[in-house]
């Protein structure tokens, strides 16, 4: 049982991280923490600095200022950079596979560079390719694969050394829905194994489904929170009620309640609520008490798209 006040050590920690290329600031003052076992999604428009952020955290480019730590090791420190590279897996935005080599040979090559002994390497490759449903195609040249299959091989490549932390840059971009679902399910399986996942994505639905927390980047990190927190930050919760007929007594009964905002559109009533579970029964009771008849009641929440558009516009 964890000690009182115990908190898991942040697996990824960025503190005022900044990267400039000449006059261009690609990432500005980026600060956030990702805890162990968390899926953290970074959303942002093209050119927002998402790929640069991943390259900074994976020790591929140097920082201009600020610091970052992965698993306690400092990004930018030469000796620590090697330890970080052993600890992390990267799926870049371009899969970057060797098209003239087989799927197995691609993974074996990376397993060797990560110094995995041959038996472990063989077992890891078999396990990963079977999990991703491409074991039967292991000896085929990658150049003959579909985009979805290549993406699966790229993910398997990033996992061949069993990393604790995984960086995924647009892992489902350009995939058909079925392939995208396989990849998402695999990411969730990796999370269930306790791995930490840093995910760059354009796909709001995907971010909402699989991320524990989401940051929205527009060179600077403009907001960060759980999907629910971000949605609530737009306009909170609303309840919409469709009546058979919005009579005058019903309207008066609803407006006599201590509600923040009430909007009528024909027979449809939309109300801002703070606690839907507590307030909805009161509203319905007032309507029924005034002789109204309710067709349905539903909760209306802002979507992640509303959140995204609010922050990136």
């Amino acid at each position: 049982m964890p000690r009182l006040g115990w908190r898991p050590r942040p697996t990824i920690e960025a503190d005022h991280l900044t990267k400039r290329f000449g006059e261009l600031t690609a990432v500005d003052d980026l600060s956030f923490r990702v805890e162990e076992g968390e899926i953290f999604g970074l959303l942002g428009p093209n050119g927002a600095g998402k790929t640069t952020a991943v390259r900074l955290l994976t020790c591929l480019v140097s920082t201009t200022s600020g610091t970052a730590r992965i698993g306690g090791y400092e990004v930018g420190n030469g000796a620590d950079a090697m330890r970080i590279r052993r600890m992390i897996g990267l799926v870049p935005d371009n899969v970057g596979l060797y098209e003239d080599l087989s799927a197995y040979r691609n993974l074996d090559f990376y397993g060797r560079l990560y110094e995995r002994p041959e038996r472990e390497r063989r077992e890891a490759i078999e396990r990963l390719l079977k999990m991703l449903g491409v074991w039967a195609q292991r000896d085929l040249l990658v150049g003959t694969f579909s985009k979805g299959m290549k993406q699966k091989i790229a993910i398997a490549r990033a996992m061949v050394h069993d990393p604790r932390v995984l960086f995924l840059d647009e892992p489902t971009a350009n995939l058909d829905p079925e392939a995208a679902k396989t990849v998402r399910d695999f990411i969730l399986e990796l999370k269930s194994e306790g791995r930490t996942i840093f995910l760059n994505t354009h796909n709001l639905d995907e971010a909402q489904r699989i991320c524990d927390r989401i940051g929205i980047l527009r060179t600077r990190l403009v907001t960060v929170g759980t999907p629910a927190e971000l949605e609530d930050s737009v306009w909170g919760q609303k309840t919409t009620i469709l009546l058979v007929e919005a009579t005058e007594p019903v309207r008066r009964a609803v407006e006599s309640l201590p509600l923040r905002k009430v909007v009528w559109e024909g027979n449809r009533l939309t109300v801002d609520v703070t606690d839907a579970a507590r307030e909805n029964p009161t509203i319905v009771a007032a309507i029924v008490g005034a002789g109204g008849r309710v067709q349905f009641v539903s909760s209306l929440r802002p979507t992640l798209e509303d959140v995204y558009l609010k922050y990136v516009r």
């Binding site: 020790c59 990267l90 870049p92 060797y98 560079l113 790229a154």
Partner: peptide
């Protein structure tokens, strides 16, 4: 574009 994953290795 296979240099990036190669450069990410130890």
């Amino acid at each position: 574009k296979s240099l990036e994953p190669l450069l990410a290795t130890p």
